[in-house]
């Protein structure tokens, strides 16, 4: 978390002029505050369980860890924990891949061609406001309860932000960039390849991030409604057997995998478009 703001630098200088005080220093030290925050969070968690607010609905934090360790050594519905995690991830990857293959080109062409846009934008606007989770029921009706309905929902959920961001990425390109290519005598194809495509990449990456978190929500919803494998299934099992530790373990694992995926995408973004350095806010 480095900030490039001049304002913050001045902040430091002003602070250094204060007389030395240990408490002040500690309160200003980021890592001290972070560790305090974690300790406070865990402390409240322990206290809430100790005074028994939620009964069996919550367990001690260390029980979650032991539960994860226990789950790794035990089979659940014939599959190990890692296989469940892989099942969920595979669904996300396939659905997400399909959405990328269909959505990014669609948004791209909608951005560069008025006619293409006139044909597809109205239909896209019909689908856009429907929350992807509302497709769960219809997809189960159509495709049963196997792999396909889950992949379908993920693809739909990831599709909308991908199209939207690719489209807006092209639309919001600075007109002057086109003028440069035209001045240099570039053809229409050159305009598209040299300007439209690279200039839209950051927006497309933003779309990928949104689509990915949407995809994880969707896979979870689909697995909670009906499935026999995946981390959503682990959570449902924990719920049905009344084990809060198992539910929280499932939640943590999903969060971890989702976090790793989104980290990979932002790493890729930094590799592919290194000119985009600002906005390191999250």
């Amino acid at each position: 978390m480095t900030s490039h703001h001049i304002a913050n630098e001045i902040h430091h200088v002003v602070r250094e002029k204060k007389p030395f005080s240990l408490v002040d220093d500690l309160l200003m030290s980021r890592w001290f505050l972070y560790s305090m925050s974690v300790i406070l969070f865990l402390g409240i968690w322990y206290y809430v369980v100790y005074i028994d607010v939620f009964g069996r609905g919550l367990c001690y934090p260390h029980e979650v860890i032991t539960e994860i360790i226990r789950l790794t050594s035990r089979k659940l519905a014939g599959k190990e924990l890692w296989e469940h995690a892989w099942d969920s991830s595979r669904r996300v990857f396939i659905g997400f891949g399909i959405a990328c293959v269909l959505g990014i080109p669609l948004g791209f062409f909608m951005g560069i061609s008025k006619y293409f846009n006139a044909v597809f934008n109205p239909i896209f606007n019909l689908i856009k406001p429907m929350p992807p989770i509302s497709w769960v029921s219809l997809s189960i009706l159509w495709l049963g309860i196997g792999e396909e309905p889950k992949i379908f929902i993920i693809a739909i959920g990831a599709f909308v932000p991908l199209v939207l961001n690719a489209y807006n990425g092209i639309r919001l390109i600075d007109e002057e960039l086109y003028d440069v290519v035209r001045m240099a005598g570039g053809s229409h194809m050159k305009e598209i390849w040299e300007v439209s495509f690279p200039a839209a990449v950051p927006a497309i990456f933003a779309g990928l991030q949104i689509a990915l978190s949407g995809a994880w929500s969707c896979v979870l919803a689909a697995e909670l409604v009906s499935s026999r494998s995946g981390l959503g299934f682990v959570i449902v099992q924990g719920m049905n057997t009344g084990k809060a530790a198992m539910v929280i373990a499932g939640m943590l694992l999903i969060a971890l995998i989702a976090y790793v995926c989104s980290f990979c995408i932002s790493y890729l973004e930094r590799k592919i478009c290194p000119w985009r350095r600002d906005l390191s806010t999250h």
Binding site: S37, V38, F41, G55, G57, S217, L252, A255, L256, A258
Partner: peptide
Amino acid sequence: FRLAEGLARPIFEFIRPIPPIAWIPLTIYW
């Protein structure tokens, strides 16, 4: 405020990647 950031950020970063849907089983309990 650095104090607010230091205290809230780790918890926020911890909760952020959990899909809200994942809370449903726990909230049914609670």
